[in-house]
């Protein structure tokens, strides 16, 4: 049975009302400013670093240290982190041949690189640095195109089992902005201008690397022993 004209008018009125409310709510959510931003070019205080010189993976007694200056939003860094690092970790870090030091070097043209570095630093606070580091790199294609990467980093933190209340407090405080800036300044002093850049001894290596090239470099600096 067809509805009466009055019934149809009432129905279309309700439908239009729901549509308007829905559009207004979505519009509000879209217009809401991002909750977290990490300030750039902050003045580095001594307390920002307090002896901190990067995130370390590997044995303190390893004969060679490789320092990587990297940017979470740099595609080459992403490829290096996801494709090459697992092999480097297995062949060189776990075998005690090298120690890896990761330093943040977010480039200015990458709008979320500093936020990503801060998110990983907040993971470090809860002893989940490498988990957050790896997840951020894995998700690079997802968050680098986002309008606001913060919620995605937060979801990675949740997936990594971080206490989200502590994570939110950490992110909102921007407490590691100085530490990130200190890392950038140190890299710049050493001559780092692009990412990824590796510092081995006092030499900088820029460009694309693969695990074989790094193995050869390590072999040339510290030949394998019988047990390695």
């Amino acid at each position: 049975m067809a509805a009466t004209p009055t019934g149809m008018r009432r129905f279309y009125g309700v439908l239009a009302g729901v549509a308007v409310i829905g559009v207004v709510v979505l519009g509000y959510l879209l217009a809401r400013p991002s909750r977290v931003s990490i300030p750039a070019n902050v003045t580095v205080q001594a307390s920002d670093t307090a002896g901190f010189r990067g995130y370390i993976k590997g044995s303190e007694s390893a004969p060679i240290e490789i320092t990587e200056f990297a940017d979470y939003q740099c595609p080459f860094c992403q490829t290096f982190a996801t494709l090459q690092m697992p092999t480097i970790e297995e062949r060189l870090i776990r075998t005690g041949r090298i120690r890896w030091r990761y330093r943040d070097f977010p480039l200015q043209q990458h709008q979320f690189a500093r936020l990503a570095a801060h998110s990983a630093a907040c993971g470090h606070e809860q002893e989940k640095y490498w988990e957050q580091h790896d997840r951020i790199y894995e998700g690079q294609s997802e968050w680098s195109e986002a309008r606001d990467a913060g919620p995605l980093f937060r979801s990675y933190a949740e997936g990594n089992g971080l206490d989200l209340t502590r994570y939110d407090t950490c992110m909102e405080s921007g407490k590691y902005a100085g530490r990130i800036q200190a890392s950038i300044e140190e890299g710049a002093r050493l001559g780092v201008s692009s990412t990824p850049t590796l510092l081995v001894g006092d030499r900088l290596y820029q460009g694309r690397f693969d695990s074989d090239a790094i193995s050869r470099l390590v072999d040339s600096l510290a030949p394998r022993t019988a047990t390695q």
Binding site: W143, E145, R147, P151
Partner: peptide, 8 residues
Amino acid sequence: LYKIGWVG
């Protein structure tokens, strides 16, 4: 919109 990072 959340998935593509347009809402918080």
